[in-house]
Design a protein around this nucleic acid. Structure first.
Length: 825
DNA sequence: CTAGGGTTAG
């Protein structure tokens, strides 16, 4: 280093630039040392030599902070630091190498600041993202200096202001000073207005422009694109083409991002061809935009090809290709690319980590999730931006770690509507519907944030899950008020909500009213008919869907197969399963296989179900064996049930529900010792049976009843009602089915146990508290037992009420002593 | 010595 400094002094000034640019980053103290050395031992000859040197070329070679400082030192030493040209250039140089503090310090030291200096300072702040400082600097220019802003000032200041109030104020200044016709100023104003969504204002200015260069067209288009106004952007885009204006790389990279939201792959490909024809693919922005366009439209191959062909890649390119793989569910390649990115010397930024969080949640690795969270905290990104916080909330929620999700949510300094939506969805997806509702009420009550489309989509499934029709209808009303009911996703959630609350007719009415171009609403209405036991109707709807050329997806077939399974349509189910693979080329997932096992098993074809499992090309998971075990429970096949549960506990020994199923099988045939063994096995593994509960909605409040729990204030009344009903039921020929009592007790006791099932408490509560002959809707978290199913039928006859019971498995739509969704199994 | 319009996200 010392040697190098000596060199600096000995060489003539013209060589200095070469020496400076050869400095390596391993000399972090070079600039300070150079400054000290040059100041303490000034060499007259050297100073004399650099006095007349043209520093302009030196500015170009300074690309790092220490080089900028070095140059600053040389300017000081050579007595050039007071020169306003050089100081202004220094202001810009420091800003360009990212040292905004030195930049502003240099600016402060300029004694007589001219408009060049002011403009440079404001622009430096903007380039470094210091928006407030830029505006402050501008107002300082207006109020404290004798210098007047010029037409260079306004474009920069406009870039800094993000709200309408400021933009209008600037516009007034522009008019006052007569800069209106200047192309640059006008284009900046146009861009700002179109970006703020003021279509009209942007158009007025645009039409008034005497000369329009390509930049003005681009300003107009990009403003609309960034504001989400795709249609307006395309109008301008077409007009531009029509007027013979050739688009450049800026036009292309502004317009490409609107292809995906419009689902317009053709336009994307046309632009891509234009890009190739005009050689614009060497522009990094253009290639990045192309990668993102293809990735979002599901063409991962095209995205990868563009990435591979890129000569120069930046951080955005890497982020884009990683998120492309993440969005298209190729997490292995996404992780490989992440490693490759680091090998290429790129440091991950906030957006890399957002993609990574999503990858981790798909991979299901809880350990990595905590490491990722730690890394993000250490970077200080969590306090900087809500986006990364939201991504972490989502990640934890998807991994089932809802408590951590909640904690991170609480820590987000400025929560936006997506923070709330993510948490609500997290609770719903983890089966915690009432917590989701609680968070939704907090959002409505005290957050000051307006719910959006995403909020409705996140809260509606919670209400469907709780069977809370009145609440769900309130959301429906709300969506009509805000015009969101025409949204396909909101509409689909409403269909789901109405059908899960027993209102299949209303669900169908909504379905007929909404656009049916995508598979999403079809899947919802098919599954609605499925859970109501209307398998034939579900198949008819599927036929209609095909007639209308709507392409079914893997979800469609899950809905269809489970509809067939609930209605006992074995042959039709098999046909669907074949059609899915042969005609639509959909590779069955474990969900589809599970449905098939359920279909065969429910229908009593237990051996075929087992043979089917053996034919599955992938390793069966717990849900597959669980379906077989459930079928064995229905059909009382002890042997196969024991076999299935052994396989089951190999893959999942943590789910208490499966132990209950197994013990039920043995309880049914009176093998109480085995029942005890299974129960103590579950106990020794620390598992607790999920307590059964039922809920009923009354006056906008959800009342929850636990089996055998006597804590409700009206409990005496409820049991009285049940005793009266029991007597009437017996007179109609009711005989309790004790096979559903899984304890080894006396018959009297068994009768009482059946009567204390949570669904009966809820029904009795409903009967007491609602007008006669009105329908009652019950929701149960587990399956309704066969005895309760029969009892409910009789109660409906006695009370002349419609009883709608939804359990974790299906619907029981009971009226006049019959269940319109078919009988128990 | 100073200026407008561009790509990635939950």
């Amino acid at each position: 280093m010392v040697l190098k400094l000596r060199l600096v002094r000995l060489l003539n000034a013209k060589r200095i630039s070469n020496v400076l640019s050869s400095f390596q980053p391993c000399y972090p103290f070079t600039s300070a040392a150079a400054l000290a050395s040059l100041q303490t031992s000034p060499d007259d000859g050297f100073q004399h030599k650099i006095k007349d040197f043209n520093f302009s070329t030196l500015f170009l070679s300074c690309t790092k902070i220490y080089l900028a400082k070095c140059l600053h030192a040389l300017l000081l030493v050579s007595g050039n630091a007071q020169n306003i040209f050089f100081s202004t250039r220094l202001v810009n140089l420091y800003a360009d190498v990212g040292d905004i503090a030195s930049s502003s310090l240099t600016f402060e030291r300029i004694r007589k600041k001219n408009i060049f200096a002011w403009n440079s300072m404001i622009s430096s702040y903007v380039r470094n993202g210091c928006i407030q400082e830029a505006l402050d600097c501008y107002y300082q220019l207006l109020t404290t200096s004798n210098v007047r802003p010029d037409f260079f000032t306004f474009p920069v200041v406009l870039k800094a202001c993000n709200d309408l109030k400021h933009a209008r104020k600037i516009h007034c200044w522009v008019l006052k000073l007569g800069f209106d016709p200047d192309v640059f100023v006008a284009a900046s104003l146009i861009h700002k207005y179109s970006r703020l969504g003021l279509v009209g204002d942007a158009h007025i200015l645009f039409d008034k422009m005497p000369v329009r260069d390509l930049g003005s067209w681009n300003a107009m288009i990009s403003g609309f694109c960034q504001n989400g106004k795709a249609a307006e952007a395309l109008d301008v885009f077409e007009e531009m083409n029509w007027k013979g204006m050739k688009m450049d790389s800026v036009t292309v990279s502004s317009v490409l991002p609107v292809c995906a939201p419009l689902n317009d792959l053709v336009m994307g490909m046309l632009i891509h061809m234009y890009v190739i024809k005009h050689g614009l693919d060497f522009d990094v922005f253009v290639s990045n935009a192309l990668i993102n366009m293809y990735a979002k439209l599901g063409c991962l191959g095209s995205a990868s090809r563009i990435f591979d062909q890129m000569v120069v890649r930046d951080l955005v390119s890497w982020n884009s290709i990683i998120s492309a793989h993440e969005q298209n569910n190729d997490i292995i390649s996404a992780l490989d690319l992440f490693a490759e990115m680091k090998l290429n010397g790129f440091k991950p930024d906030l957006l890399t980590l957002v993609s990574l969080a999503s990858i981790v949640s798909q991979s299901g690795d809880c350990q990595i999730s905590r490491a990722l969270h730690g890394f993000i905290m250490r970077q200080g990104w969590l306090t900087e931006d809500s986006i990364i916080g939201n991504a972490i909330v989502d990640m934890y929620a998807k991994l089932g770690n809802i408590d951590s999700a909640r904690k991170v949510f609480e820590g987000i300094p400025v929560k936006d509507v997506i923070s709330w939506n993510t948490l609500i969805t997290g609770y719903t997806q983890n089966g915690l519907a009432s917590e989701a509702v609680e968070v939704y009420h907090m959002l409505e009550g005290c957050s000051g944030i307006a719910p959006d489309q995403g909020t409705l989509v996140s809260i509606l499934p919670a209400y469907s899950h709780l069977g809370a029709l009145q609440h769900g209808m309130r959301i429906h009303g709300r969506s009509i008020k805000t015009g969101l009911h025409v949204d396909v996703f909101v509409g689909t959630c409403l269909i789901d909500m109405y059908s899960k609350c027993g209102k299949l007719d209303d669900a169908m009415y909504l379905f007929l009213e909404m656009p049916q171009r995508s598979s999403v609403p079809w899947n919802a209405i098919i599954s609605s008919h499925g859970i109501h036991g209307h398998g034939e109707k579900a198949l008819m709807l599927f036929q209609k869907m095909q007639d209308k050329d709507v392409k079914p997806d893997h979800v469609t077939f899950v809905s269809l197969l489970s509809a067939c399974s609930h209605a006992g349509l074995v042959e039709q189910g098999k046909w669907c399963f074949q059609l899915m693979q042969e005609h639509y080329g959909i590779i069955p997932s474990l969900k589809h296989y599970g449905c098939m096992v359920d279909l065969l098993g429910r229908a009593g074809q237990l051996d075929s179900a087992y043979e089917f499992i053996k034919s599955i090309p992938v390793k069966p998971d717990a849900s597959i064996w669980g379906a077989l075990l459930g079928a064995c429970r229905i059909h009382g096949n002890v042997e196969l049930g024991a076999f299935a549960s052994n396989r089951l506990f190999e893959v999942d020994s943590e789910n208490a529900g499966y132990y209950v199923l197994l013990s039920n099988i043995y309880a049914n045939i009176g093998k109480w010792e085995v029942v005890d063994n299974v129960r103590s096995l579950a106990k020794s593994r620390g598992l607790k049976k999920t307590p059964g509960w039922s809920s009923v909605e009354l006056n906008n409040k959800v009342h929850v009843f636990y089996t055998g729990n006597r804590s409700h204030p009206q409990i005496e009344e409820i049991y009285n009602e049940l005793r009266v009903l029991l007597a009437k039921m017996k007179s109609l020929g009711y005989v309790p089915d004790f096979s559903f009592v899984l304890q080894d007790v006396e018959e009297d006791e068994k009768e009482h146990i059946l009567m204390s099932h949570s669904e009966r408490l809820a029904i009795a509560f409903g009967i007491i508290n609602t007008p006669t002959k009105t329908p009652i809707r019950i929701f149960k978290n587990l399956r309704v037992c066969g005895d309760c199913h029969n009892a409910t039928k009789l109660i409906s006859k006695i009370t002349e009420r419609e009883l709608i019971v939804r359990d974790s498995n299906r619907f029981h739509l009971i009226k006049d002593g019959n269940c319109s969704c078919g009988d128990y199994w």
